Amino acid sequence: MNKVIYGVTLLLLSSHGMAAGFDCQKAATKVEKLICSDSALSQLDEDMGIAYRNKRASLYGVKRQQYLVKQRNWLKQVRNKCQTSKCLIKVYQARIWEINGQKAPLPNFRITKGQGYTVCEAFLKVLNRTPREELKSCGLPNLTDSGFEAVKFTEVPADQTLKMDRKYYNLRNFKVPYEKVKAQRANRYQLGFYRIYTGVLTIDGKQEPVIQVTQPSASCYMLPKGDYFTYANAFRDNWMTLSDEKKLAFAKNAGVFKGYTSTDVNLTKRSLGSGELVQFRGGSYSIYISRLRSKNTTNDWTGKNRVALYEFDKKIGKKAHFERKKRCDYWYNY
């Protein structure tokens, strides 16, 4: 068995929350050996580590440090005094229940921003009925009977593709002049690498036309659990060597990246960004699904799904533009 003992690594946490890995092959104490030799205890140790990190994620400053001290004290004064598996099971279960605030298993996701808002609570139900393996960075979860509907888009006819693409390209304010990339983009549209659509969003009670362009992207790949930077760098380097045809084949399973812009030139360019678009009770929202990638403690965070729901609004005045503001944030509990 080659398993990280989360309880022991927590004991090694610094004041900044960094952790050192501890291999079961190096287990030294009786408690460590008991955990490593018993699959039930190993699972409890992992469950407790997950519960600890989830709770710690919402704490900052003094509260975070106090929580760290409390966990260290539990390890020293409670867990490490056990001499039997029965004792360890009992104290682990008690600690997990104490951290989670309930005996029943936690749902997949919990709200970290937007508690009490109807749209946030409604989308939480969608997330918690969706198996984690079905979540994609580029794709929607099952919205059936949820109150959410995917925004409908219509593909632009072939004879209008490049005309609309030029408009999209200029609105997005890409730095390279369109004429220099026109031939490549035309070839990619012919291949199906790029596809362009038109649709309508409801923003500030009004119907607003938008252009959507889709394409395969490395960002649609959900990295496996482990050292994020190792996986990400290797995948990025490999992605750059792939032909358009291979990238397109990849997208059949991973989905495609979707970029948007408004067709109203009076609104700020690049105003809509990217993501999955949905309608809910007359409002338009953008869904962003990712795995945390910016934390230093990659072993703690890699493989953890994070979901955010952004609401579109329109400011009034001479500088009228679409504003995308975060309405809901969700954290994956396991």
Rank of each mutant, 00 (worst) to 15 (best):
N54A: 06
G199F: 04
Q71L: 09
G101L: 08
D313V: 01
R129F: 11
W97M: 15
K269N: 10
S286N: 10
G21Q: 14
K325N: 03
R64W: 02
N54S: 14
E245R: 13
K246T: 11
I99S: 05
C24N: 01
E149P: 02
Y194W: 03
K252Y: 08
V78H: 03
N108S: 15
C138D: 00
Y60F: 11
Y260W: 00
Q115Y: 07
L59R: 00
R270T: 06
Q25T: 14
Y231A: 00
Y60P: 08
K26N: 05
E311G: 10
K325A: 11
W331F: 14
E311V: 12
K325L: 07
R188Q: 15
N173V: 11
K55N: 11
S85E: 11
L277N: 00
N299A: 10
K63M: 02
T298E: 04
T9Q: 06
W239G: 01
K314Y: 02
D329S: 03
F257V: 03
L12N: 12
R291L: 15
K314W: 06
I89D: 08
T202D: 10
K182G: 04
L34C: 09
Q93C: 09
A150N: 04
G199I: 06
L309I: 08
R270K: 02
S290C: 11
T154S: 08
K81G: 05
N305E: 13
I111L: 04
R64S: 01
N54K: 06
Y285T: 07
P157K: 09
L12D: 06
D237I: 12
A254L: 06
E133F: 12
L242S: 01
G192I: 00
G255K: 03
I111T: 03
K258L: 01
K182E: 06
Q71M: 07
A251L: 10
A27H: 02
W301D: 00
T268H: 09
L267C: 07
R293K: 15
N187M: 14
V91K: 07
Y194A: 06
W239V: 05
G275Q: 02
L75F: 12
Q66I: 08
R195W: 05
M240K: 15
S15N: 13
T154L: 09
P177C: 05
N253Q: 12
Y285D: 03
